[in-house]
């Protein structure tokens, strides 16, 4: 049976249940911890490390660390802010993010977290890798230039759509998003209403003919920072 326990995040005591992941407990209690690969409808992945917090002084990914009674957690301090920025900046330089014409700009979670953390420019040199755009599917575009390999589409296709359209292939710097077909996305059984399309945080998976409908200034994150429904800080 799950017991009610108390944990402390940035000096605020919150109630949760044993085994609940720290990030979920925080969000449920109205405290925002920045995150990217985590999606509330999907099992956690623990890969992007943006949600890193200090648990009793140790750095842990809050999306995959179960809460225990009495845990003392720091999320909002200068060191963690800098680490989170570093992770986000790496995601920018290792892909090709041309926000000025990206269909997702203004409602992209990568961009929104970068805005919220106050990133003006990445500290790392841009890599400008050669990546493909796969427009073979009649309804969907897959732009590998913008894929941050968060695995959300992989989990959603597996767990919610009961398909296995996507997978993360190879390892380390060579990791890329693969599709379950000989050549390209058009050969898979992906369909336009798949949850996998819904959960992509960036402009990597896009439904065709839906772009640029909302004027600049009225898009989701133009005026309102991501997570502002929650209290917490950076």
């Amino acid at each position: 049976m799950k017991e009610e326990i108390t944990i402390t995040i940035d000096g605020v005591e919150i109630k949760t249940k044993t085994g609940e992941f720290i990030l979920r407990a925080a969000l449920n209690a109205g405290i925002y911890i920045p995150h990217l690969c985590f999606h509330p409808d999907l099992p956690p992945h623990g890969s992007c490390r943006v949600c890193t917090v200090k648990v009793n002084g140790r750095h842990m990914a809050s999306c995959t660390t179960p809460a225990e009674d009495g845990m003392v957690i720091t999320s909002d301090d200068a060191e963690l802010l800098d680490l989170r920025k570093a992770v986000i900046e790496m995601l920018f330089v290792e892909g090709n993010h041309f926000c000025m014409f990206c269909e997702m700009s203004g409602k992209c979670e990568l961009q929104a977290v970068a805005y919220r953390l106050g990133i003006l420019v990445p500290r790392y040199p841009n890599l400008f890798p050669q990546r493909e755009v796969d427009a073979s599917h009649p309804d969907v575009m897959l732009d590998h230039n913008r894929c941050i390999l968060c695995g959300r589409c992989v989990r959603a296709s597996d767990e919610k759509d009961g398909k296995h359209v996507f997978e993360l292939m190879e390892r380390g710097a060579k990791t890329r998003l693969g599709v379950d077909a000989e050549n390209n996305l058009g050969e898979t059984n992906l369909s336009i209403d798949d949850k996998a399309l819904d959960v992509c945080p960036v402009g990597a998976l896009l439904i065709k003919d839906t772009a640029y409908r909302i004027p600049i200034g009225e898009r989701q994150y133009d005026k309102t920072p991501v997570g502002s429904q929650h209290k917490g800080n950076k």
């Binding site: 000025m100 700009s105 961009q111 106050g118 003006l120 600049i216 133009d222 005026k223």
Partner: peptide
Amino acid sequence: LELPYELIKYD
């Protein structure tokens, strides 16, 4: 320099 949220944009 701390620019307010609305003034940091990449597009």
